[in-house]
Design a protein around this nucleic acid. Structure first.
Lengths: 153, 153
DNA sequence: CCGTATCCATTCCGATACTG
DNA sequence: CAGTATCGGAATGGATACGG
């Protein structure tokens, strides 16, 4: 039987996973951030089967994460580009990356990391902070039911 | 054929997805943050089949995300608790949550959100910042190859 | 209450061949 | 180059029945 769809869940985590919670989607987004925009670039960068890539790209277009745009340099071609919604996934990639850097590598292994292209500086670890700028402790978060669109606090 | 394992990739995003990149693992972590620690609590909170839950819990134990501890209140029972490695997944949950809140709900829908249990304040959006505290623009991130354990910049 | 074992349908994924 | 079509093996997921 098909997995339950989570797209009506009240939990945003569940809905997010329903859209991007598979192995390839976020890696496609990663490639897009690295500059990939064509079918072959994604395929070579990821090494996945073409039919899988095809179906993922189609789903990501439908989900509004990618959009098709004519090639920049006059080519009569269509390219896949991140939408605003897709660009915002960058935070999730950074969170995944930092967790992986801190927990999945042993000292000495080669590893890629994000650096600022201007200064070469690396990034600080992301931290959850309250509206007033103070930091939230590990266990000090509770879920609360609100109505979307009505500013909380 | 089995999906390629990504656990030797140099990209931390790929390795992270190899460990937590399926639909249930992060939801189990979410339940654990909400206080679930027993098999039945996870099962009722998520509504997934018991065999799936069983295999996921086992894998998460093997991956060091959960650990078994004797029940707090003298019960002769074992409970699943997040390890430090598991607790650090909180950032990923927050990133997923904020993306979902911003992109997957229409105004008026009921939605859960994180608030600070002390003050009731909601959280600010996560932001990537450089070591010097300044904010990084959307496209100003490049991946760079480094060696794990050697501090970058 | 805590799982494990089995069964079955669906999906995922890779490989390959093929079209425009 | 950019996909689509098809195949087969493996994994996923739900339901149920069963043992500790």
């Amino acid at each position: 039987m098909r997995r339950k769809s989570l797209n009506t869940a009240t939990c945003p985590v569940a809905r997010s996973l329903d859209v991007i919670g598979d192995w390839w989607t976020l890696l496609i987004v990663r490639e897009a951030f690295k500059g990939a925009s064509r079918f072959s670039e994604f395929q070579q960068g990821l090494g996945l089967a073409k039919n899988i890539l095809s179906s993922r790209l189609r789903k990501m277009l439908a989900d509004g994460i990618l959009e098709l745009r004519p090639a920049a340099a006059g080519g009569s071609h269509l390219e896949y580009h991140l939408t605003h919604k897709g660009i915002q996934l960058r935070l999730i990639l950074i969170a995944l990356r930092q967790w992986g850097e801190d927990n999945l590598f042993v000292s000495g292994e080669p590893m890629t990391t994000f650096v600022d292209s201007q200064t070469g500086q690396s990034l600080k670890r992301l931290r959850p902070i309250r509206q007033d700028g103070t930091e939230v402790g590990f266990r000090d978060l509770v879920t609360k039911l609100v109505v979307a669109g009505e500013g909380v606090d």
